[in-house]
């Protein structure tokens, strides 16, 4: 008898939960996916939004920019996310995929900037690097040091080999793996920026874009660049233990650990809040999120979430996002995006 009632109870619980699956098909919370770089900022806004309004707190998954856009572009409907965060602009191929799957109108919101810092332990002096140094130290193939327009496998072992003004220590850089948006931005902004200093490589961009990209974006694999995983806290700890190593991560981690690590000068500029904000620091990138216009008004709270995100108390120069390490946009740019968001102006790509 007892067994029977247990069986019936089990069956009942599953009926109930199956029933609630159907009830959940009308989703009452915002679903957000995307970049792990935007994640720490988006979560703050989401939490604030959840606490100060009557809407539920949005759910935010950290899937990476590419993974987020893939989910975002899968289609329209409650089972698909409403917003995706990205630490780069949407690509043409992704936009086309969105169009193909019926995600016709996408609103792009640029939220601010993030600096990518090359940092080392406070126990030693800060490095004074240029983007060219970074390219020569970290690329897989570099221009032949003896001259000529040929590439050789990276021969440099110490920073002094790269640039005589740098200290005579082994090149050892801890950085994110290829799946990371931080890595994408680093190779694009720092290494490609450095490679462009060689005229013949710059000239290649027009002739053979693929080969150009391969030169600029391929990181050496002989142990000088150590893939330290996506956990930036771990990199900070390793830098503290090994003063000769450099680490690559987002500005917010430098901001939180200023007593342990220091940012290296890149092209003569140290990564500070102000230097990134006014564009002097060369290795910074814009951060975005994308909104599915078809979901606005269907999923409750999207418009209000956008308002919260684009309010000055959030993304303004004194807003709470800047306290978390995001670099705000200049006033005009902010006003521009604010009005675009109000009007839900979709992007077009040909």
């Amino acid at each position: 008898m007892f067994r029977k009632s247990v069986l019936i109870g089990t069956a009942l619980i599953f009926l109930v939960s199956a029933g609630s699956v159907y009830a959940a098909s009308a989703r009452d919370y915002i679903s957000i996916v995307g970049s792990s770089t935007v994640y720490p900022f988006a979560t703050v806004v989401a939490e604030q939004f959840g606490k100060t309004t009557s809407y539920k707190t949005p759910k935010i998954e950290s899937t990476g920019s590419g993974g987020g856009l893939k989910l975002f572009c899968a289609g329209v409907g409650v089972e698909h996310p409403d917003i995706t965060n990205a630490s780069r602009a949407i690509k043409k191929s992704e936009y086309d995929k969105c169009q193909k799957n019926g995600v016709k109108e996408i609103v792009e919101v640029k939220i601010g900037y993030d600096g990518i810092v090359v940092a080392n332990s406070k126990k030693t002096a800060p490095m004074k690097l240029t983007r060219k140094d970074l390219f020569l130290a970290l690329a897989k193939d570099v221009p032949n040091p003896k001259g000529g327009e040929t590439l050789v496998p990276n021969p440099y072992k110490t920073w002094k080999d790269v640039n005589p003004s740098l200290p005579n220590v082994k090149i050892e850089v801890l950085g994110p793996p290829p799946t990371s948006g931080t890595r994408d931005a680093f190779v694009e902004l720092a290494m490609e920026g450095g490679a462009k200093k060689f005229d013949w490589i710059k000239a290649m961009k027009k002739k053979d874009k693929k080969a150009y990209k391969a030169i600029c974006h391929t990181v050496r694999e002989d142990g000088a660049y150590v893939e330290a995983g996506e956990n930036d806290n771990l990199i900070v700890q390793k830098l503290d233990a090994n003063p000769n190593a450099l680490g690559i991560f987002g500005f917010s981690f430098l901001d939180q650990n200023t007593d342990i690590i220091q940012g290296s000068f890149v092209d003569g500029v140290q990564p500070t809040f102000d230097a990134i904000a006014d564009g002097q620091y060369p290795v910074s990138r814009p951060l975005f999120f994308y909104v599915k216009k078809a979901h606005v008004g269907v999923i409750p709270g999207i418009q209000e979430y956008l308002n919260e995100f684009t309010s000055d108390k959030a993304w303004g120069p004194d807003g709470y996002l800047s306290e978390k390490g995001m670099i705000p946009m200049p006033d005009e740019e902010r006003a521009q995006f604010q009005s675009d968001v109000k009007a839900l102006k979709p992007i077009t790509m040909k």
Partner: peptide, 11 residues
């Protein structure tokens, strides 16, 4: 995922 609200059910 970042989830603030304490879940109250299976879905």
């Amino acid at each position: 995922a970042f989830i603030v609200d304490v879940p109250g059910g299976f879905t």
